[in-house]
Design a protein around this nucleic acid. Sequence first.
DNA 1: GCCGTTTTCGGCCCGACTGTTTTCAGTCG
Length: 571
Amino acid sequence: MTNSQIAAALSEIGTLLELQGETGFRANAYHSAARSVDNLGDEVEARVRAGQLGSIPGIGSTLREKIETLVLTGSIPQLEELRASTPVGLLQMLRVPGLGPKKVRALADSGIDDLAKLKQACDEGRVAKIKGFGAKTQENITNGLAFLDKAGGRIRIDTADQLAGPIVALLRKVPGVTRAEACGSLRRRKETVGDLDFLVAAAEPGPAMDAFAALPGVADVIARGDTLTSVLLPVGHGPRATTIRADLRVVSAEQFPYALHHLTGSKEHNKAMRGRAQDRGMKMNEYGLTGTTCASEAEIFAALDLEFIPPELREDAGEIAAAESKSLPKLIELSDLRGAFHNHTTASDGAATLLQMAEAAQELGFQYLGIADHSQSLQVARGLSPERVRAQREEIDALNAEFEDFRLFHGIECDILPDGSLDYDDDILASFDYVVASVHTHFNQSREEVTARVIRAIRHPSVTMLGHATGRLILQREGYPVDLDAVLKAAAEAGTMIEINAQPKRLELDWVHARRAKELGIPIVINPDAHATDEIALVSYGIDVARRAWLTKDDVFNTKTRRQVEAVLRV
DNA sequence: GCCGTTTTCGGCCCGACTGTTTTCAGTCG
């Protein structure tokens, strides 16, 4: 049973308790415990089976027992009872924007207990007659149902970047606006975002809010108050089109640093920060911190005796304790990268030649670039036969003879075959400067099979690094059911590196497991998996993941100089 | 349900906005 399955069960108990009227702190404890489990790098199941669950924040003796029961028996009696006594449609109804546990309960008491009945009741005007509801609420629910229908919920970070960039630029041009930033999960660089948050400093909120409400394509203005405007923005075109919520908050220049911190979140980080302020007899909100006039976020942290905490770390995942003891890592930066190792050319399924890729890498300031085209069995991607491997080697040697202060490394993205063996004979594998081993096929293997398969590859002496650790496509495909905890342990033992695949649709390892990999001492490689010259720059998304995983320059192999890399690869 | 040198009970973050209310509850972030 995976951590996310355990977290989902705990979270469901919390939600069902809310629906039963238990809105207070007890329900919240389940949600908080679920989040703790989700953010855990190693597997709860393994801990339970080893008889040492250990201490997890937010999990006391009661929840400890329930987790053990869940792992060992597959279910929690309390959850089964809650499910049995709660109509299944109520959980769906909670997803409608504007409907919380209280309103859903009220609807259920009137016999409306699934989305279809809710739609029908709205159409017939029955919802407006329920006590506590009205015509406006009924209209909002109708709109909410339509939103649920067409909105996929979250969008990828690169999509969010493309949306938010022009909006920030536009806000900065509004007369009277002195500062404008995108905040929220986008600023924390999460792999997906559920909404966009913008913050503006201006003496008068009106002009910025007007400009925001008039953004091209705004489908609806959900809310408009004195300092906050919320709109629905269309995303994408055609059948994949969706809608996302965007908020603009306007504050004074003096309030800006406090509001920037507040709106950047996360919610949990903010809670912990406000609690810390409270412990010191101070009150913290988006407008200020008692007794301070801070000109920057750094000064706010300093006022609470903390080091500056970069936005990427603000998840209430230990960052405040580390900032208190001045032991936050110096996070890796994009400028630390000196090369990358997983890149394709026209030899397999890339769009650029060796020379074009080499030139693009040099323009980014790289000292080296590793070429890892596909291996022979992956025929859809024109995988390289042994003969073509030798030809590419000669081509690379010839180019390297021409370069000054730059080098192409000759690698391969070698398929891990279904049984865990590799796609070339050992002597060919040994001829490469390095080997990236990846799973591309047979995703339907069992967890045990695919885990054993990946671990066998990791242990092969010629394998330098593991690519595509999970095979997932963000918001599209789950990936293969690998036991990542076991894979990481095997990599640590074998001394095999693991890549953070920087394609924004992949981003595997994710930040939770990349952080775990660091704890285990596994070298990380940030790879763009570039299939064209302009994709090499995607390494910036890998940097985002690495920073969220607390990685420093020293944790990442491709921050090393060309000479250092040559020494490690023994080329 | 969790948590802890003002602790084993009584706290548990804070505010904007909306809609249905005659002063506030619910939802959201």
